[in-house]
Design a protein around this nucleic acid. Structure first.
Lengths: 199, 199, 199, 199
DNA sequence: ACATAATCGAGACGGTACGTCATGTCTTCTC
DNA sequence: GAGAAGACATGACGTACCGTCTCGATTATGT
């Protein structure tokens, strides 16, 4: 997508790349996924259409890269979850925050746009897991491992499964709009999960 | 969606309606969601475009109705889950079947198309919960209630939550392609869920 | 190009057709041939591009039709050349007028555009001879026949050849800009032609 | 066109210049005028686009130069027409040869391309008359002068006019495809011309 | 003999127009 | 009067070239 193998080899214009990603981010927030046209992105970025087609294979790839660049800037080099020693409290804090983020109408359109791309393009899904979800999940699993060491979680629990039981219901509710994303709901999910994977 | 209050009042052609829904189903299976054009549906159904626009507000609504009609035909009037008295065995059977269905490439495109509509259109989401998910979920909850009565599940468990913990991880794996949908995985989900909501 | 075989059969919009031809005429006069874009014609005519592509196979065909329609309107049903009985005087009058028309910068761009199309498209050339040049040439030949009857022109002269000897030098001078188009030059051409085909 | 006053001053690559003209000639023959793109010429010539833009002001200029170079190579330093003492026979031979050349489909596209440039670009037209048509016309007029001296042509005939009456009808027939270019036609033109300018 | 600057190949860039496709509306004619 | 057929204005698609603009990498002098 955005190769950095031989960084000096390409004559690609960094200026244009940034402008395109920035315009994409703005437009996705404004009008949502389906309505974003490549022509509009190009116009907004002050760039020829060909410059987009030259470097990205599809609209989805541009949108994905826009988010990728955003998160790269945001995270710095790593994500760490709070570790107060109380796994229940820590998870509830994190899950409540996630629920709140999902509930924020501000994030609605961009996150939906991103998910739309991932859902319909296996290639982007792979990228998503590698570049975006992967590091975050690893941080979460690190916190769970700490809980295992503290005897708050079964030592033999499959941490990927734990994460799914914890987060998938929240994600599904948000995606399918099948229920409210309240703090209570977040708490209930943590309770259920910890109950399922008790030592 | 397209139902009138007075069912006999409309001069609508049932013949055309069926042809449209059938053509929609076929085309979604063949080419996937994004590529289905209303023009193509009309041509395939041997119907004027206006006949589609007259009765459905959007492409999503047509696709949704196509599935709705399908399931109405399939279900007859109700869904019942097996009840051997062993909730664990019954759930594993059901969840394995669901996992297998998701894994079947035959169902891939239509189900993804349906979800696509639901995800991006709140109105369709509501319809989905009312007409499609609702009855099925009710059947599942009936089986869970039976388990509660049998003392295999906490009497005060929130059955909606139980269903989410059970199904959402499977749904998410499929949607985001984040992992394989094996029978073992289905079993693990049942185990975790029952462990979480043990009496 | 513009079939009139079954006039009632087509659902074609006469309004759009006229608007397109009118816009084409205007644009050709304004910017010349090479610069006229189909997009611009469509925009000026308040018409979708597809409406142009639906009815004309090429830009050249549109331009040609624009002129065709113009001349159909102009001519009414026939062209007649003056016949004072003096072929030399009559031809000089006509040829001077033609030279003056060619020299008029106002007609420069449109006529060059038309010739451009004819030169590069054999199909349009055929149409040109049938619909535009044909009737005019016939009128000219009628005058020549009158001169033959009056004994001012060889009775066995090939009238097509006479017309070519008379007009082609003028046309070539104009097209290749190889010399001035004066009244004297027109006179000299008439003299040479009459001299060549004297009885 | 691209010649400098001081021939040794320029660091221009003769190799590239030749490659460009050669590629242009080949492409014009293959695809005709309208379709030749500068990008294609550059690619075919193995040359950067800028090298073309640096030395020629327009596509027309390149095409024109391609022909100019060709004819310079062909002619050597001068053109001479046959002079057997019989002007009629000599002209018929020459005009038949010209008609045959025009009729040769091999020459169709290149000559049409050249004329296209000349017709639409006054600057190129001037160059054409000076560099290409001029010398040839001078040779033709030299033969006509010889005929005048031999009393086969009016001594006061305007030789430019004679040439036009002789050649323009042929040129026009070819350009507008208004008739066949036969040997008989060539003969008829010579007859008419000589008849017009008899002493 | 070599530094130095013009020229070269390559090709990315912001653009314009292309010809195609699908949208949703409107019109015409048929059953 | 609903329906099939399909023309219409609109507007995005992805492609082809335009003419300009860097990029190193050769040349080819002219001190």
């Amino acid at each position: 997508m955005s190769d950095d193998a031989q960084p000096k080899r390409s004559r690609r214009s960094e200026r244009s790349r940034q402008a395109i990603l920035e315009a994409t981010r703005a437009l996705v927030s404004e009008v949502g996924y389906g309505t974003v046209a490549i022509e509009t992105i190009a116009a907004r970025a002050g760039v020829g259409k060909q410059t987009i087609y030259r470097w990205w294979p599809s609209k989805g790839a541009v949108i994905f890269d826009a988010f990728l660049a955003l998160s790269e800037g945001t995270e710095g080099q790593g994500v760490v979850l709070p570790d107060t020693g109380d796994i229940e409290a820590d998870l509830k804090a994190v899950l409540r925050a996630t629920a709140a983020e999902f509930a924020d109408p501000e994030f609605e359109k961009p996150i939906r746009a991103l998910n739309n791309e991932i859902i319909n393009d296996p290639g982007l899904a792979a990228q998503y897991h590698e570049k975006l979800a992967g590091p975050v999940d690893e941080a979460k699993k690190e916190r769970l491992r700490s809980a295992q060491r503290a005897g708050q979680l079964a030592a033999d629990a499959d941490l990927d499964l734990v994460l799914e039981v914890l987060y998938a219901p929240l994600f599904q509710r948000w995606l399918l709009r099948s229920g409210p994303l309240t703090a209570d709901y977040a708490d209930a999910l943590v309770d259920a999960t910890l109950s399922a994977f008790r030592p």
